[in-house]
Design a protein around this nucleic acid. Structure first.
Lengths: 153, 153
DNA sequence: TTGATATCATTTGCATACGAATGAATTTGC
DNA sequence: GCAAATTCATTCGTATGCAAATGATATCAA
């Protein structure tokens, strides 16, 4: 790096319009950081399950047996991603798979008894995770934030 | 009763029964979906670069030559992640690497001329990405959202 | 000075995340 | 009823993202 380049940099810095794009103020960048923070809080409270794995179990608890694709739609995962998540839950005995009787393309997913126990046990921790994630905000701010975030997602 | 009231009740609730746990109302789940939507908007406008790659270039434009680790800190990536991002930018000739003269542990990263051209060309598109990501909100809502999101991240 | 500690970078392993291609099974349109 | 289009699932390739272990270098402290 030459002295000439440093001088050029100083001259350019005087032109505010060329430098008013600030990464740290862009919604995408902050969204990524907020998501990272949430995942970190999640991992600290629920060490043996990832957020996507938890989402799959929680949704299966809501809706009962469904096809792998349908479950993916419900928890916002594409087919390739949901397959990996379900494979790992199956390997741990938390879900079981079966073929749909009529439509043989469909792979049905359901909680095992162990999976149901696990999700029931983890839900109180998940509530704490939500609370801790929102802890920097007052209750009123949190409500506003959730409303706006839902509009954005 | 409005959706906002429902959210407020959930946020404030500390002793809700387990059957009230709704995945689609948890901040982590919606945060993940909002992030997914942003990445999708980004990819539609800037096809040849990922958000992390763009972040690295934009930050190098701000701060000039830095060590790989320091860059990672500035763009919220751990050492293993930033290495991969920089490797790919280097393979495409957008950044160049050199060893620090005094501290031989440090790997200095800087934009190439091509990298500087690329980031200058892409910044107007990045502004549009921010706008489109926030488009579901009014200007006032967007300002509120950004303030609260920053507190959360 | 030297031994302990800290920092920078790399590597490995695992887990999302998604586009694209493929194959199997079903539904649609004529 | 049959070809075309669609749907469900799988596989491959690429790119984050992070924990843990390792090696090289630098700094601190006795």
């Amino acid at each position: 790096m030459s002295g000439g380049d440093n001088l050029l940099k100083l001259v350019e810095a005087e032109d505010a319009d060329d430098h008013d794009y600030l990464l740290q103020e862009q919604v995408g960048f902050i969204l990524r950081k907020a998501h990272q923070r949430h995942v970190s809080i999640f991992a600290a409270r629920i060490a043996d399950l990832t957020p996507p794995q938890f989402a799959a179990l929680a949704k299966l608890r809501d809706v009962g047996e469904t096809s792998q694709n349908q479950l993916g739609t419900l928890i916002a995962m594409d087919a390739a991603t949901v397959k990996g998540v379900i494979d790992r839950l199956k390997a741990r005995g938390l879900v079981e798979l079966s073929r749909h009787e009529v439509d043989k393309r469909r792979l049905l997913v359901n909680l095992t008894a162990e999976g149901r126990d696990a999700i029931e046990r983890l839900i109180p921790l998940a509530r704490e995770i939500t609370q801790e994630t929102l802890a920097p905000l007052t209750a009123k701010e949190a409500a506003t934030f959730m409303k706006l975030l839902a509009k954005l997602a």
